[in-house]
Structures are given as structure tokens and as C-alpha cells.
Design a protein around this nucleic acid. Sequence first.
DNA 1: GTGAAAGCGCTAACAG
DNA 2: CTGTTAGCGCTTTCAC
Lengths: 337, 337
Amino acid sequence: MSTIIDVARAAGVSTATVSRVINTPQAVREATRTRVLAAMEACHYRYNALARGFATKRTRTIGLIIPTITNPGFAESTRGIQERAAAAGLSVLLGNTNYDPETEEKLIRVFREMQVDGLVITTTNPNNPILKNLVAEGFPFVVLYSTVRRGHMSCVGVDNYRGGYMATQHLIDNGHRRIAMIAGAFRSSDKSRGRWDGYRQCLRENGLVYDKDFLAQTTYSLASGREVIQQLLRLETPPTAVFCSNDYLAIGVMEGARDAGLELPADLSVVGFDDIPLASYVTPGLDTIRLPAYEMGALGFEALLERIEKGGQTPVHRMLGLELIVRGSVAPPRGNA
Amino acid sequence: MSTIIDVARAAGVSTATVSRVINTPQAVREATRTRVLAAMEACHYRYNALARGFATKRTRTIGLIIPTITNPGFAESTRGIQERAAAAGLSVLLGNTNYDPETEEKLIRVFREMQVDGLVITTTNPNNPILKNLVAEGFPFVVLYSTVRRGHMSCVGVDNYRGGYMATQHLIDNGHRRIAMIAGAFRSSDKSRGRWDGYRQCLRENGLVYDKDFLAQTTYSLASGREVIQQLLRLETPPTAVFCSNDYLAIGVMEGARDAGLELPADLSVVGFDDIPLASYVTPGLDTIRLPAYEMGALGFEALLERIEKGGQTPVHRMLGLELIVRGSVAPPRGNA
DNA sequence: GTGAAAGCGCTAACAG
DNA sequence: CTGTTAGCGCTTTCAC
């Protein structure tokens, strides 16, 4: 490949001038500039962003870490980040952890070795010491989905506790008293745990007992929702309603309940979390807690960009609003009303 | 940050030795190695992959271009690529084109400026001259989803024509004669066009007329499927069946048909394409053409890796099998037997 | 406005 | 086994 040196030679200028034509064209006389541009064309010159990154120590690349690309919620936040990043002229390196903390650590390391300018992390555990190190080093990053109130980490997220509470209250308002929860494994998802805390607290405040047989922890997928609900339904007094910590799980649950011969929502009420596009396409439409994923990604990126450009140290804490969406997957329990 | 030079100084060796400890540890005497390792630890040394890339002209990074992260089909192929890439120690840069050819070109340029070692491209148009240039330059890349029989491009894909044919035949076998097709815009998706060709040919070979009112081109999304079917149903003689060029569209169609008061599959039969996980979670289960997306990604990556490592020039052409999956969204038309 | 020259942190011969 | 020594292609003072 031809380099700046070749171009400089072909145009009869110095490499510094070629560099100026690329980076600060207005700092070069018109005539010189067009000559250089022509030379670049003639040489089939291609800019080497790696060399620039090496020289400037800025790569205009950020790393994005998500649990899995397969979940539409993360797809949305990713879209929010990528669109804003593209507009700002930054590239996004994407990595998935599959909810595995070790993979998360590895990705952080690899991205830093690649000299990314910053990181957006959807972490399985915001208390991970690795993140504290990042803060200590002053490395720019923002955490998505979670919100850590204390601490010096920038976060753009939602109040998962509150969302869990809202979902549960919705079921209680419809007359349910035997409410199960199917959650992502707490070990691999603090979001899941926050939602569970909200669920428990809501039960308590409504004078309902928390039955630990009614909590199932599993992986986030359609298939596990479908399986787990079957177990729950086999209990001596099965739940009349279930709150799932994401929509995928909830849709799996709906299907699993049908497999078991139940009619929805009469025999089982279901509430999800996220409001993925699909939630309005299943039958009945899924009641869920809407999480503004795209917006969260976009705002997260903006916060990161600010940190990168301005180099400030003050952490950003944004808590986005959640909203209960009612579509028809919740009804009063059979015995009731 | 500390560099190899600092580490070398701290360990009392040359930078070359430090480099060896990193890249070919077995080429360094045990004692020296542990001394260097200790020095790295003490200096909080972090490897600079950018500098290596600059020096070696290999970044161990590939670029992946897909239309949109939002479609679960692409999410699956992406997963296939990422998992294999991670296993091979390569990182993946992800970019989406939103089915826009200009964005596709821009991404190719940006990735090449970043000196990726190769590219996996899910293109909107395999005949794009840009791709020919890539071939001419000998730059390693592979095209996914499409299969160009002629030409020197490596492809790992499926026979979209055949898939379209299979889907249509399935409907005809069930007694349908008025079969519509809802496709992604041909301008932005050659896959869609291939599937359409198969659809038309199948109609013809079965002695059915191809009614161009029965073809709708739209964007690939749940929402557009939902809208477009409404228009189709308003025709004087509406179709009794519809073949959608992807599952998202098909699921949208099912919902749109329900909005219009139809009963499925009795009033309208639907066939999709891809077999996304969700296809078995809607009611009725979606009949579709299964496309092995994960496998395609994995094989595509392997083909690319081979090209990168061995530097061969012989193009790979892999055509993966398609399979009709029957779940219940197709039934004989009402008037019929 | 433009040029000269010194690196950025690593690797890769080539010696020894 | 280990050290020496050039670069890789670009940016960036500092002169002119």
C-alpha cells in the first residue's frame, strides 16, 4: 500500500503537508491542497488509522460490552450507541460476555490493549473490582442498565428495583396473591437481583408472604422460560401469576403454559420486563415494564464521549424512567372476582 | 502507561527479550522469563496491541458488516463468527448498514483504514463493484448469505432461489392458488430477490399466474409485515396465503391478519424464512425455511481465517442446506377440501 | 503556509 | 538464549 510518504513525493511536498491536508485542510493553501489530493488519488492512497492511533494515542474507537447480542433489548441499546458513535465519527468494537464475569474481564483487557478510547459496559456486576480499578486509573467508561448510586462510576440505567416493584404491584392490583418470579441468575446479573428485591418488597408491603419455591433462577432465554414454568406449575399450589425479569423469558413462559394446557391470561397472568418489539406481537400482548433501551444506549454514549473529549472526572448518573405497559397478558385469577 | 522499554529496564534485559516473553515464551530461559514477568507486574505493564499491529501489519481483528443487529437471524450469524473468532484469538469489529449501500461502502473503507485483517460482509448486493475491487486487490473477505456462483468471491450462503421455491411449493401443496409474497426491497437485498425468483418460478411451474399485485416490497420489520398484509387483504380477490422473505415479516403478518379479524391458519396461511428462535413461540407455530445462520457464520469465519493465515487466493463457495419446517401456520384454504 | 526531524511501542532480522 | 538496530506510517513541535 502507498503511504503518506509516497503521496508527499508524488505531490512534491512534505509528509507534514499531506498530514495537514487530511486533518486540517483549511491550514493548507488551496493550490497545494488540490495537488496533494490529486496525488492521493493517483497513488490509490488509503489512510492508515492504526498509524494515527499509534502516533496520537487516540484511536477514535470505543469498546462495547454486552451479555449477548441475541437479546433484542441489548440489540436496541447497541443500536443507540452505534448510531451516535457513527455520527461522532467513532467506531464501536462489540464483545459479548454470555453473562460470564471472566469473559467480561477478558474483554475489558483486550479492548484496553487495543487502545480503545473508552468503554461502555453492560456488566453482570457493577461492584466488580475491575471496574473500581478502571475508575482509579481514570479510564473513561460508563455502565449501562445498572445504576450504582454511591461510587464514582458513570452509569446510565434504570431503577431495576422500582421496575420489579411496579410489575408485582400490577399483578397484585389484579387480585393475584400467589405470584412467582422467574429471574436471570443473580450471580450473573445484578439487574435481575434488583428486580427481585423490588418484587419481594412489594409482596411484603402488600402483606403477602414470599414463598421461596416461587422464585426460579435461570438463564435468559425463550427456552428456559418455557421449561421453568412447567416446574412451577407442578407445585402443590401453583402460582396464578408470574413476573419474569425479561420479555424473552416471559414469552417462553406463555408458550410453556400453553403446552401445559393453560389458557392465557385466564389461567396464568404474565408480566415481563424490557418491552422488546415482539412484546406486542404475541397473543395475548405482553404486559411489561418498558425500558428505554435505545435511549439508554444513546445517552450512555454521549456521557462517554463527554468524558473522552473533555476529560472530566465527575461521574454521570442518569436514571431513566420505567413505564408499565398493559396489553392483555394479565387478568384476575380464576377463583377471584 | 509503562512500555516494553520500562519493563526491559526494570528486568535488566533488552526490549527484544521482553517481546519474546510475550510472544514466544518458550524461546526464553526460565529464569529470565520469570524476572521479566515480575517486572511487568511491578510496572503495571499493559500490552499495546496497536503498536504490535503497526509493527507487524496484522491486527488480529476482522470487520463484520451486517444490515442490522436487530434481526435475530443476523444476531445468530454474528454469534457464529464471534465465537469462532474469539477461539482463534481474533477480535470482531461490528458495523451495520441498515440495508444502505452507501453505509456499506463507508464501513468497508473505515474497517480497511483500521487495518482489519479481513472482512465478513453480509452485503445488500454481491455485484457491487466495491467487492470486485476487494477481490482485485487480493484483500481477504467472505460474503455471507448470498452465493455468487460465477466470480472469484468467497461466499458461504444458501440457495435463496431454492428456498423461495420450497416455501411456495409448500403452500401450493396445501391447495393454495392465490399466494402473495412480501419481500424486503430488492434494491437493498439481493437475498430477497433470489427468494422472489424462486417464488415466481414455482408458481409458473405449477401453472399458476403470477399476479404482480401480490408482490409487496417493504422493509424487514415486524411493523411493516403488520401493515402490508392489511393492504393485501383489501384487494378484490385477496390471497389465501403469503410467503414472507423473513420470519420477522411473517410474524408481523400474522398479527396484522388477526387485527383484520382473520383466524389463523384457516383464513390465511403464512410461511416465513430463517427460522429464528421465536418462530416456534408464536401461535400458531410458524412454518418457515430454516436457514442455518449460526453455522453459516462459523463456516464463513473459518473460510476467512484460512484466507488470512494461508494467504491462498482460491475462492471458497459453500452452499448450506435449507429445510422446510412445518409447525402449523399453513392450512388448506377455506373454500378447498 | 510549509518543511525537517523526532518520536509513538513494538517486532524482526541479524549478530553474537 | 539474548542484545542491537532498524524501521512500521503518522503526527507534531519548531523553524523558516
